[in-house]
């Protein structure tokens, strides 16, 4: 499968120049206003999130809709501006970039979206769609543009290239559309690829094809990839590390294998329980998943945000104090009071 990447826990602490992007105490809050001016409150979409992403590494951010993963993604694309905190890209803070520097940063980050049909302008041909980023980023020579378009299409295996250049998005299948989206994300030769649920709108039979393609591109170009999904079952075939996000916070960060074999946070446990595997026995019993729904990000619960749904919630602790980050196991961090100090007991449900 994947080449051995410098992410294994046995390796020495990574050098700073190995880190492509480093997110520090990031807050993305949106102001709620009444009548367009009076302050009502904040939507705390991303609240105090920190992580590092190394060159050539793929991470997955897993969470349900409304957990803030899209806001985090948009902030990394600088479609949103951080409210607080820093985003350090190749050693410099990019959160307030403007003009040419902003354009440069954006050329360094590719974006693969969830709904391929919506992600492609329906009135442009494939050639035009791929030409746009090049035109915008100053590739003046037509021959060079065409050469890079061809190359990009070849890389996503839309061949023979001539068959696709003049097609409109609606003439392509979902899988082909997503390949065009990927080709567009790759055409500026970015260092980071942000993939927002890249396969959730596709049919099961083509999902794997797209995930493999992304994996292949990641390895060939030594890309860093941030893979955003709600589907745990696809993560293991794609990324090294996984971040679980709940209500604006990263609640657990570790390697995918460790997460599957030893989930720490009760929310992670719930996600794993909730994920179905094709098995006829499923129909015979109910799933033990926490009831309720993720909280509002305007008035999140006090203390741990998962505590109202948590089977292991401890009164006067979880509902009162926000859990700090613990590292009960090497390279496996979790924001949960269950792992406070020498208490390293696993939740009972696991």
């Amino acid at each position: 499968m994947s080449a051995q990447l410098p992410t294994s826990p046995t390796e020495a602490p990574v050098q700073t120049n190995d880190i492509l992007i480093s997110v520090k105490n990031l807050r993305v809050w949106f102001e709620l206003k009444k009548w367009g001016f009076s302050h009502v409150g904040w939507v705390r979409a991303v609240d105090d999130v920190s992580f590092d992403l190394k060159r050539g590494e793929a991470i997955a951010i897993v969470g349900e809709s409304g957990c803030g993963k899209s806001s985090l993604m948009k902030t990394l694309l600088l479609l949103n501006r951080p409210h607080q905190g820093q985003i350090i890209f190749q050693g410099r803070d990019i959160s307030n970039l403007k003009g040419k520097e902003l354009k440069w940063y954006r050329s360094q980050v590719g974006f693969v979206q969830q709904n391929p049909y919506g992600a492609l302008p329906p009135f442009m041909t494939v050639r035009r769609i791929l030409e746009e980023p090049l035109l915008i980023n100053g590739v003046k020579a037509k021959a060079e543009r065409m050469e890079r378009i061809r190359q990009a299409l070849q890389e996503v295996a839309l061949t023979p290239v001539e068959d696709f250049l003049n097609k409109y998005p609606h003439m392509l299948s979902g899988g082909q559309q997503q390949r065009v989206v990927i080709a567009r994300a790759m055409i500026l030769e970015p260092k980071l690829l942000v993939a927002d649920e890249p396969v959730s709108m596709l049919d099961a039979s083509v999902r794997v094809e797209i995930l493999r393609l992304l994996r292949k591109l990641q390895q060939e170009h030594n890309l860093s990839v941030m893979y955003i999904t709600h589907d745990l079952s696809t993560v293991r075939f794609f990324s090294e590390r996984i971040f679980v996000m709940y209500a604006g916070k990263l609640v657990e960060q570790t390697h995918i294998k460790d997460l599957l074999s030893n989930p720490l946070h009760p929310y992670t446990v719930a996600l794993l329980t909730g994920t179905s595997e094709p098995d006829a026995a499923n129909a015979k019993h109910l799933k033990e998943v926490p009831p309720g729904e993720p909280p509002s990000l305007v008035n999140p619960p006090t203390g741990c945000r998962f505590h109202p749904r948590c089977p292991n919630a401890m009164p006067d602790l979880c509902d009162a104090k926000n859990p700090p980050t613990f590292e009960p196991l090497p390279n496996h961090v979790v924001d949960c009071w269950l792992y406070d100090g020498d208490r390293t007991a696993y939740p009972e449900t696991s």
Binding site: K74, L77, L79, L102, K103, R106, S107, V109, G110, F111, Q113, Q114, N115, G118, A119, L120, P121, E132, P133, I136, N137, V181, R184, L188
Partner: peptide
């Protein structure tokens, strides 16, 4: 729409 976001992401003015 997704393609507008994409255009912003690749730096369209």
């Amino acid at each position: 729409a997704g393609y507008i976001q994409a255009a912003q992401a690749y730096g369209a003015s």
